[in-house]
Design a protein around this nucleic acid. Structure first.
Length: 613
RNA sequence: GGUCGCAUAGCUCAGCUGGAUAGAGCACCUGCCUUCUAAGCAGGCGGUCCCAGGUUCGAAUCCUGGUGCGAUCACCA
């Protein structure tokens, strides 16, 4: 158990219960002062291991620096002192240099009674300080795939977590809506499309456009082969292929504002956006504000010009503009081409500045982008600092590992991608299959069933992806379906549904009434109850930890621990059939609290929970 | 080659600021549905924490050097 963050402390202060760890720390310091005349700066705590009796453990070893003596006898002395002076400490034992403290039930019950609403437990009120979280930066020439799914789920979840940790959050994306890749789809469509539309083909807009991106590549490769046969070198062939030149012509026309080309661009991008909308909806994510590359690259150019004046950048003989980062241990980086056109970096400079202009309360930004762009963001952040923006010190690249297939990297042009919509559909189908086999929801309407399948299927997928540490790469094998048992989304959803079932029954019998402190006083805790309470108590701290580490995986692991402990309680301790009324009431409330926290934690991962399953 | 990241059970992953005998799930094996949903519970099997040094009372964790895998070092994004 790490020391509680100041946020968690604030939560406990708000409720009558003082954080015990703080009390223990100061009492232990007093004990050392009284017993040995020494001054202790810090006390190290950790959760007591399961195989020893106790709830919280004080590590004695670090004290040996200021107190000379045998760790066991020091532990004994502190333990005796605490039992004497701290009401919550019932008894203790010392194993080697570890002082295990057994806490009173009363301490845990006071904690439980002090939280009036577990559905908001651990979430801090939103402050003035705003963060902007960027995720899902799609190109508008092809549909979203599994790689985007990780990006989207991760970014969304981190945004929710940061929000819960007490910051205002704007969710945004940068849409790469211009450039040669878009023109490729446009050329292919106008040449081979025969006026096809999403309406005439019944295809999702992004799929339709993606097909023409693939078509372009096919034709391009064929033309290269033909040119090589006619005696051209590989390089010449690649540069001279007519369809590529056509795309390049189109880009020039687009930049010149050619009305016909711009109209085509708008039409095809419109199809793609409609398609993306559907995918985002299926994933249950949203955005507060959108940015388009076509809108921000010009602002980037302005600031490059300004930086050139102030000496942040320099111009080479050919007219290209660079930033010298050799003092920072990096290379020189281009920020404007010799022909004056913008590069990726130019646009990103512009976008960042635009965002803060539009949202003056933004004091930092989080970019959810794959780790292949680590270098790019290192450079971007440095440049923004050099340009003198004070928010530049609060920029963070949420860098995540690639999602690879057993066959290697996914490539859109070669059709070796796991399509986002297909994957969600597959997961839903698997959920359906399993649900039907179990046959528990035969009473559901067709509509309710479909909703449930989607809840479970997408829950399985989201949990599967989010439970992994973001910086690690994921190897995804489409042949082996995502699990629905063990450490999975459906397992946790199932626990939630079982609790709801109990609550419904309790409600029918009017046993759900608010628990009062007097009832709690008469309860003596079962070991399993105590374990569940211990984990519940950690939730506020886990949110803060997940926020500072930008890691939904911490929320996932926490939820799993909570659910595992609860299931053990559920299976071993009767709830509705408890011996006494006060026990029954308490256990119902405990179950409810657990389900509230499950729902809350899952919402931080963008996962919904079913009432029955 | 330079830089950055990763390496823990057969597989997928936890392991917080260094602390006790390194933990889960899947798979495999045993039990448990006439009591609240068995997508569950209880238990078993399974480890040279990549290797070698170092710091420390104590290292999977920190440092150095290797090895392996990945990324990056474009007037691509």
């Amino acid at each position: 158990m790490s020391s509680l963050s100041k946020y968690a402390k604030a939560i406990f202060d708000k409720h009558i219960v003082m954080n015990l760890q703080l009390i223990l720390e100061s009492e232990i310091k007093k004990a050392i002062q009284n017993l040995y005349g020494a001054t202790l700066n810090e006390v190290e705590f950790q959760a007591t291991r399961k195989d020893f009796e106790g709830d919280i453990t004080v590590v004695i070893f670090p004290m040996l620096r200021v107190v000379k003596g045998n760790p066991v006898s020091i532990g004994e002395a502190i333990g005796a002192y605490l039992v004497e002076n701290v009401a919550e400490v019932l008894k203790f034992n010392v194993v080697k240099g570890f002082l295990n403290l057994v806490l009173s039930d009363r301490y845990y019950l006071d904690f439980f009674g002090s939280v009036s609403d577990f559905s908001n437990f651990g979430k801090m009120p939103q402050g003035e300080d705003a963060m902007m979280v960027e995720y899902s930066s799609p190109n508008t020439n092809k549909p979203l795939h599994l790689g985007h799914i990780r990006n989207i789920l991760l970014g969304y979840s981190v945004a929710e977590i940061v929000k819960a940790s007490g910051k205002k959050v704007y969710k945004t994306q940068i849409i790469n809506d211009r450039g040669i890749h878009i023109c490729k789809s446009m050329v292919a469509w106008s040449t081979f499309g025969n006026g096809e539309t999403p309406e005439t083909t019944g295809l999702k807009g992004d799929k339709l456009v993606g097909n023409y991106y693939v078509k372009f590549d096919k034709v391009y490769k064929k033309q290269i082969a033909e040119l090589k046969e006619a005696g051209k070198s590989e390089e010449e062939a690649k540069a001279e292929a007519p369809i590529l030149q056509e795309a390049q012509q189109m880009l020039l026309k687009w930049e010149a504002g050619d009305a016909e080309i711009v109209a085509l661009w708008k039409k095809m991008n419109g199809w793609v956006y409609t398609g993306f909308e559907k995918t985002y909806e299926a994933l249950g994510v949203d955005f507060d504000t959108l940015y388009y590359e076509s809108d921000t690259y010009l602002l980037g150019k302005e600031f490059v010009a300004e930086g050139l004046q102030t000496g942040v950048f320099f111009k080479k003989e050919d007219g290209s503009v660079w930033c010298d980062l050799t003092n920072e241990g990096l290379d020189e980086k281009i920020v404007l081409r010799s022909d004056g056109t913008a590069v990726y970096m130019t646009q990103d400079i512009g976008t960042a500045i635009q965002r803060v202009k539009d949202h003056p309360d933004v004091s930092g930004m989080i970019y959810t982008v794959g780790n292949e762009q680590d270098y790019h963001f290192k450079v971007l952040f440095l440049i923004l600092k050099k340009l003198g923006f004070n928010w530049a010190k609060n920029l963070f690249h949420l860098s995540y590992g690639m999602v690879d297939l057993p066959s290697g990297k996914m490539k859109s042009r070669e059709g070796t991608v796991v399509d986002a919509d297909d994957l969600i559909e597959d997961m839903t189908a698997t959920a359906k299959k399993i649900s039907e086999e179990l046959g528990k929801i035969d009473a559901f309407s067709e509509e309710e069933k479909d909703e449930l399948y989607h809840t479970i299927g997408s829950g399985a997928l989201k949990y599967y992806i989010l439970k992994v540490d973001p910086k690690k790469r994921i190897l995804f094998n489409p042949e082996e379906s995502v699990d629905f048992q063990g450490n999975t989304g459906p397992f946790i959803q199932y626990t939630y549904a079982r609790i709801q079932s109990i609550l419904r029954k309790a409600n029918e019998n009017a046993e759900l009434g608010n628990i009062d402190i007097d009832t709690l006083k008469n309860v003596s805790l079962h070991l399993k109850e105590k374990e569940v309470l211990k984990i519940l108590q950690q939730y506020p701290e886990v949110i803060q930890l997940a926020a500072t580490n930008y890691s939904p995986a911490l929320i996932a692991n926490y939820t799993y621990d909570l659910v595992k402990e609860f299931n053990s309680f559920y299976q071993n301790v009767p709830i509705l059939a408890a011996d006494t009324i006060s026990e029954k009431q308490f256990r119902i409330q405990l179950a409810k609290a657990v389900s509230d926290v499950i729902k809350s934690a899952f919402s931080l991962m963008g996962i919904t929970v079913p009432e029955r399953m």
